[in-house]
Design a binder for these strands. Structure first.
Lengths: 238, 238
DNA sequence: GCGCACTACGTACGCTGTACGTAACTAGGA
DNA sequence: TCCTAGTTACGTACAGCGTACGTAGTGCGC
């Protein structure tokens, strides 16, 4: 008997070096950087244990000395790009600072289009994530609400950024492995949508679609969403 | 030459029957239902072409007569659960109606925990998605804002529901294939977090964590987020 | 200087999505 | 009415995946 309950592993709690034996050839940062390089160039599906190992110039199974599971590799990747956040000095204008943070997150996601696909599965407490959270709280210092409300604001804002940017990216990236372009696919989908609308089964939807003149300005939609979320937390507006 | 540009396929534009040859043994709905059954029972990773085919009682490759790519199977699944939305008669209270819609979406996601993982990749215009969108617009009839603003409200609200419920589910589901429980993993992660906080490197984060007495009430956090989003669109509050 | 914890990594297994080829079937045109 | 072309059905096969396991070599701590 004896449950032999395997103890959960958290990559961040695992020491990077243990002292005995040969020196590890790579650091965790090396591995994360290699994985990020591949994901940027070929998409998340290009990140395979074999591929990352090849990028590092070592045998596939050697990777498992550093990363117990592939999922942990993902955690390393998310943490690595967390370092790209500029932890600027708060200006005292919490709204402007949070908008800047959101814009930066959006820019990072556009540089690393695989991030949104990873977000729901990755637990949020890597070192750089903690640093970023702390930075956001510093930006929110002038906001006179309980600390719990501030973390809720950060969570909601990050969620909106991820959702909007993720959708945008997904639309563009879906065709990466397809033999046609995103524009071609979009045209076909819009043609189908037009056909559905023409059936008259969705009157209100039809109205909404015909109301707008040109193509949707995604950037403007994004900014409006951010402003609304900030409004909802602004004591001066209530 | 001749570009031979493969034409994009959209599963919904493809007719379900073509007329010639033997009658198909299954409908699209049969296939979607089988896939959903598997995903509910074993998680999204259990949904393999072989497994779904076995569930239907046909050869693996026969599935490809109905679904050109696995990704399209995912679209069928998302559409199938869209049918679970209750398209109730709008009451005239748009806030209450939208809260009800959000609660229902959350309940559906909890019944089908694989949904959030699929959301970013799946294009949103399946038949049942269109019906749901139309229903939301009907609920928003009393709200005196442009139609475009209404669709933005629906998008933002759905995004929040997906993000919050998805995070919740991800935390609970990550251990499905692990040899330890979610509680055990959570304890280890919290121990790590405690260690980090103890370093004093994150003063504001520490304050936020020590401020709260008991465990976080996720349901209350969720409801507050919804209310805030609704506030941000409510003309009577501005 | 010995031993052991550690790194390195080749091989192998079970699994995946799906390309391809073949056989059976049936609706439409002659 | 029969023929044929477009379907459905599906077995086989292949490249690639994550990773368990075993072995060989290395160098720190005692």
């Amino acid at each position: 008997m004896a449950g032999r309950a395997a103890v959960p592993e958290v990559i961040w709690a695992r020491p990077e070096r243990t002292g005995r034996g040969p020196k590890p050839a790579f650091t965790r940062a090396d591995i994360a950087a290699a994985a990020v390089r591949i994901a940027d160039a070929e998409g998340l599906d290009g990140v395979t244990m074999r591929h990352v190992a090849a990028e590092l110039g070592c045998g596939t199974m050697s990777l498992y000395n550093y990363v117990p599971r592939k999922e942990d590799l993902y955690e390393l990747m998310i943490d690595a790009i967390g370092a790209e956040h500029e932890m600027f000095e708060p200006t005292g204008d919490w709204r402007a600072d949070m908008l800047r943070n959101a814009d930066e997150t959006r820019a990072i996601m556009r540089r690393h289009t695989w991030v949104p696909r990873l977000m729901p599965g990755v637990f949020g407490f890597s070192p750089n994530t903690l640093r970023y959270l702390e930075h956001c709280l510093a930006c929110l210092e002038p906001l006179d609400v309980p600390a719990g409300t501030k973390t809720e604001l950060v969570a909601l804002l990050n969620g909106v950024v991820t959702t909007y940017t993720g959708n945008e990216i997904a639309t563009a990236e879906r065709t990466r492995s397809m033999p046609w372009t995103a524009e071609e696919e979009n045209a076909v989908r819009m043609a189908y949508l037009g056909g559905q609308i023409a059936t008259g089964a969705y009157p209100r939807l039809t109205a909404a679609f015909t109301e707008q003149s040109g193509p949707v300005d995604l950037e403007a939609v994004f900014r409006r969403a951010l402003e609304r979320v900030l409004d909802a937390f602004d004591p001066e507006l209530r």
